[in-house]
Design a protein around this nucleic acid. Structure first.
Length: 562
RNA sequence: UGGGGCGUCGCCAAGCGGUAAGGCAGCGGCCUUUGGAGCCGCGAUUCGCAGGUUCGAAUCCUGCCGCCCCAGCCA
């Protein structure tokens, strides 16, 4: 594992917890939870929350539960719960025996609802959804009370029991909290606690046809589990009043809700709704498409859990809405892979090179360092012979200023091999360079010139006769604009989709040591970037995904020249 | 024109009355058999703005400005 930031994270939430510990507010306990709704795959924004909740539990010797907030059967699926469990585990967190579902509490929640009805704090309302909206008023004008608001406790009890029994059609009635229709916080204007949905739930099947709403469910689930700090994102700040209201009215154990700003990433969309559309409309190959900001996408892309966790530590936790530069994420994976990824030669766009003065049948095994950052990684031998492939981009017939690479008459080093000089350029009928002829200096074996002469460029290469064929998938950001949602009137995020976010290269040539490389393994293709073996890869068809390019100063120089 | 929040370098973010951490990006330089990595150096006289309190304010007070969230039987 690569080194991460050395200082323990500190932020306003941890400050609150330290203070609560000092004052013994919860008897010295710290108990958090990560409460996803299983209606989509987890993304990097969830990783921030996971690292926060599980991280805090670890740091303070507490516990963190994994709880599925599964109160809406129309949107939730087991596929999502399975993927979520896998992703949390992959990130390196452990919920022990504390895997919970809000649906586990349906019976208990029902009893709590009965209690509120008996207390005169909840009532069955027959208003339609449209009417409820009308009665709610607006942000500036108070709402009106429902005509059903003052039903007797007995009638409410009877109706609510019959709602549960399935006597009423979907949407015909709700159970509402009786709070204040003139409350300045719209959420407090008699919020719906239960609605009728005749749908099968992925865990409770057809046992229920009334389902509790988020506000009623979440606070009580936290209470039931003995959560101390219920950490959620900023958009729930308004809900805190309701969170507190239910708990106070019921007189039960009362955790505290704390809100922080969710993660936003430049050139990235982290809305589950839009992510779902990208998948459903086929803009990407699936939730784990390597261009997706999902945990499974990042995993397939070659990101490591360590890099993601380090990223989450670096971005911090605060209450100000912000947009983190995607380059910070890229920095994190480069930093991690630089330390751990074995180096290898891979030629993406092969250009044939013939070493005219190299013996026809000779094959030499060149010793190459596996990882200059990690001596323990050792060395390997890579075959060298008369016919090689180098990168097309490493040759220019008409080299610009500051060009260090190969060009007619130029001498460069073939890494760990020899100095070679370009003596001839062969073109096809279209005038494209298809082959280079070079001569080598036998005295420079290993890449050093005994006479001390220097070359500016060092190229990677592969022996034509020994190289393996491979497919390489080059990825770029999915969106062209820092804010993908910044579109003209009438357009949507698809207007900002990057048409070149995926480029598939076939006929790539990689060194023979890559034979049998297993899916998921990560390498640095020297001078190019980090790549990982895709699950599509097979014994006779290697497939690599670009995780991140190396930083490219030549590209910057060239750009500056234009 | 209701309520709840937030405003410190291009992007994140420390700071909690004693005189602006750190990271990313950027820009120089060194080093280099990856134009990689590494190393060194450069950046806020200033903390949304305006007043006030104070010996002293990013930190306290007042007023203003800007941005975000809330009118789902979603979470």
């Amino acid at each position: 594992m690569s080194e991460t930031n050395v200082t323990a994270p500190s932020d306003f939430i941890r400050d609150i917890i330290r203070e609560d510990l000092r004052t013994n507010k919860y008897g010295g306990r710290v108990h958090t939870r990560f409460p996803p709704e299983p209606n989509g795959y987890l993304h990097i924004g969830h990783a921030k929350s996971i690292c926060l909740n599980f991280g805090i539990a670890e740091e303070f010797g507490g516990l963190c539960n994994l709880r599925f907030d599964d109160t809406n059967p129309t949107k939730e699926e087991v596929e999502y719960v399975e993927s979520i469990k896998e992703d949390v585990r992959w990130l390196g967190f452990d919920w022990g025996d504390r895997l919970f579902y809000a649906s586990d509490y349906f019976e208990q929640l029902y009893e709590y609802a009965i209690q509120l009805i008996k207390k005169g704090k909840a009532y069955v309302c027959d208003l339609s959804p449209e009417e409820i909206r009308e009665y709610r008023g607006t942000l500036t004008v108070p709402g009106r009370e429902s005509p059903y608001r003052n039903r007797s406790v007995e009638e409410n009890l009877d109706l609510f029991q019959r709602m549960r029994a399935g006597e009423f059609p979907e949407g015909s009635r709700t159970l509402r909290a009786k709070i204040d229709m003139a409350h300045p916080n719209v959420l407090m204007r008699d919020p719906v606690m239960y609605r009728i949905i005749h749908a099968e739930h992925h865990r409770t099947g057809n046992k229920w046809c009334i389902y509790p709403m988020y506000d009623f469910t979440h606070c009580l689930s936290d209470s039931i589990e003995g959560i101390t700090h219920s950490i959620c994102t900023l958009e729930f700040e308004n809900n805190r009043a309701l969170y507190d209201w239910f708990l106070d009215e019921l007189g039960v154990y009362h955790p505290q809700q704390i809100e922080f700003a969710r993660l936003n990433l430049s050139y990235t969309v982290l809305s589950k709704r839009i992510l779902l559309q990208l998948v459903n409309r086929g803009y990407v190959s699936g939730w784990d498409d390597p261009r997706m900001p999902t945990i499974s996408g990042l995993r397939r892309r070659g990101y490591t859990p360590e890099a993601i966790r380090n990223f989450c530590d670096l971005i911090g936790v605060a209450k100000a809405n912000s947009v983190v530069d995607i380059e910070l994420l890229e920095h994190c994976i480069r930093q991690d892979l630089n330390k751990r990824a074995p180096r290898v030669f891979g030629v993406l766009r092969p250009l044939k090179v013939i070493i005219d003065n190299y013996p026809e049948d000779l094959v030499e095994e060149m010793e190459c360092i596996n990882n200059p950052e990690d001596p323990s990684a050792g060395t390997r031998r890579v075959p060298f012979s008369r016919v090689l492939y180098i990168e097309k981009d490493d040759f220019r017939e008409d080299p610009p200023k500051k060009w260090f690479r190969l060009a007619p008459g130029r001498e460069v080093r073939l890494r760990y091999a020899y100095y070679v000089t370009c003596v001839d350029v062969i073109k096809n009928e279209r005038g494209e360079v298809v082959e280079l002829h070079c001569t080598y200096d036998p005295a420079t074996r290993g890449g050093w010139a005994p006479d001390g002469r220097k070359v500016q460029g060092t190229l990677h290469w592969v022996s034509a006769a020994h190289a393996l064929d491979a497919e390489v998938r080059l990825y770029d950001r999915l969106f062209l604009k820092p804010n993908p949602l910044d579109v003209e009137e009438g357009q949507d995020f698809t207007a900002n989709l990057n048409p070149n976010s995926l480029e598939v290269l076939t006929g790539c040539r990689v060194e023979p040591s890559l034979a049998g490389a297993v899916p998921g393994s990560r390498y640095q293709f020297e001078r190019q970037g980090y790549f990982c073996v895709d699950p599509d890869s097979t014994a006779d068809r290697l497939v690599f995904n670009l995780t991140a390019t190396l930083r490219d100063t030549w590209a910057k120089i060239e750009q500056a020249q234009q």
